[in-house]
Design a protein around this nucleic acid. Structure first.
Lengths: 194, 194, 194, 194
DNA sequence: AATGAATGAGTTTTCATTCAT
DNA sequence: CATGAATGAAAACTCATTCAT
């Protein structure tokens, strides 16, 4: 179990930095601090390794969001909590966040497997939105696009922040993303509601 | 010139489908309908080929947005026109749109070159936003994040649409993206302004 | 002792089916129902394992032939008994028979060890022939080739039978091989001597 | 075409000496005097290479036999001519002959492909036998075994000769094989027919 | 200009063997 | 005695790039 975890970390590191295709199994092994053969003792191959990583990572992210959302019944509070969880998770797992964006659309064949994993995450987002719509707080939405919009908005901004390596004021970032998503560019500033 | 254009098309095709790293120069040549050697007669190498593609594609997209925005002085009208241009361009260049998302974050070394290209596009978006803010129509924004948010929201939804291969009502998609971006999930429906 | 025998069986199984080089020690262990480490507790290595198998198998075959031949003094009867023993042994040890043919010529380095083992078997065949020649029943033969001819004729036909998986009439097969070897394609049919 | 032929020769060399599994593609390339990549430019992979070799070699052997047999209508003459052709071909292609015996039964998966190739050769032998049986010169035979018997008898003896590296009197070898096959160990010596 | 055969450095994967428990 | 996680040397295969034609 020890080694398997080392491999997990090494793989996230390597894939996040170089991208799945450009990172070699040698690099993964080196960063994991294990011999190359050990990689193949624990994982069938490179492909299975990335799938495991994505499943694990998205699962954790999804759980973090679920937990945060469970704290309140208020739709707006839920969206804020969800975005807060996303930002916090990304901040604690910068490597994985890069890997996620780099790999999620990378390969047509893998697409199928990833999409399934991602779908469960999207379903969670959809659930939050539906709750708010049902309560009459959110506008009705074309639900085939809504989770993608949320995901795209939040993820791409976060990635930008991570890639620029700047130490970010998390609080401020969450505020921005929440306001933007909730009220758009035209809406009131949530910090100073009239 | 004929051949160079064939190569351009073949490369977009191949890179969009398989991703930059997994697409081989053989595949590019095959899809372009030229011999492999011809690729190297017209382009220095694989790396230079993708850079040329990105530059060309983003340039076209950026121009399309600029042209659309130039039609009006009204900030909201400009945002709508810009989103309309993005959707239209993506619809006419589905392959390139896939390639864009797949390759833009792919590789750290290339990052630099791409970022430069992408920056000019982001600058254009920033300009539109600044215009609206200046007019007092849009809320003040953290401008280091604002173009990323816009780009992420629009691009990821469009990609979702393209990947699902569904024939989409462009009009409805633009409406959704505009409303979402302008007013957020809580805002009024743009179609039925009070 | 129990485990050693399991390994023996597992190794025959694995080597017979996949060939020595393509069968892995994992497969041997699995078929033997022991852990991989156990293989190395009982045998020095893969090479030593195949040698042990061949020695054991050819020894058994050789003994079976010797025993059958000892029943009679009549040269023709001895050849028939020998062929009968070969067919019977092959039928009871189909796996080993496949392994024998697959591995006997496989590798130049191993050749030496195997040749020694095989030589004792060939010597036995040579003895039977010499006995018949001495009695004036068999024609003088070029003895450097005679045992190979006998071995090749019988073994390849048996292998063919085994590989085709057909349930064979042993009696008829022995008759055929004996007649063919004794009288050639032109000789009388042993079953209906004129 | 030049290189393809070099590869053919190099592969026969390497596979004959080390056996298919133990010969590396590096060795094949080295013996062929080409770069490793060239191997893969001309052949899909190792598996396809051995298949091509077998097909080519058995085809040549089969043709040589056919040509020899066509010279006469006499059944016994045909068998002698066939064996003569086999010995001659083996003598001129010692490497291929070793490869044939080493690889023909090596691998269960490959078995299928090889068997098909070998079958055409066996069919030729069957044809010769049927001709003689029809003429009433040869005894009726169980034709499911007859070609295997012929093949085994001749091939294994030839292999023995090749492996021992002795310079052989071809004439004498053909005589022996013919007599053995035609009259068995008990039959008259063909050299001194009564 | 265009071609495609040839290359070899680089990558993934396999597997016999070891050794701490 | 027995185990199975860990190893690393070795092997098959890929592919961007070159170059003679």
């Amino acid at each position: 179990m020890r080694k398997a975890n080392q491999i997990f970390q090494g793989a996230v590191d390597a894939f996040a930095e170089k991208g799945f295709d450009r990172a070699t199994m040698d690099e993964v092994a080196e960063r994991a601090g294990v011999a190359k053969g050990t990689l193949y003792y624990h994982f069938v191959g490179k492909e299975e390794l990335i799938c495991f990583l994505m499943e694990e990572g998205i699962g954790q992210l999804s759980s973090a969001v679920a937990e945060a959302v469970a704290q309140t019944d208020d739709p707006q509070g839920q969206v804020r909590a969800a975005i807060g969880a996303m930002v916090a998770y990304s901040n604690e797992n910068r490597k994985f966040c890069q890997l996620l964006v780099k790999c999620i659309w990378s390969n047509a064949e893998r697409q199928e497997q990833f999409r399934e994993i991602l779908q469960s995450y999207f379903d969670r987002l959809t659930g939050i939105l539906n709750h708010g719509i049902h309560r009459g707080v959110f506008q009705p939405q074309p639900m085939e696009w809504a989770p993608s919009a949320w995901f795209g908005l939040v993820t791409i901004v976060i990635l930008r922040v991570i890639l620029q390596g700047q130490a970010t004021d998390q609080e401020r970032l969450v505020d921005y993303l929440y306001t933007q998503y909730m009220y758009g560019i035209i809406g009131r500033d949530i910090k100073t509601p009239n």
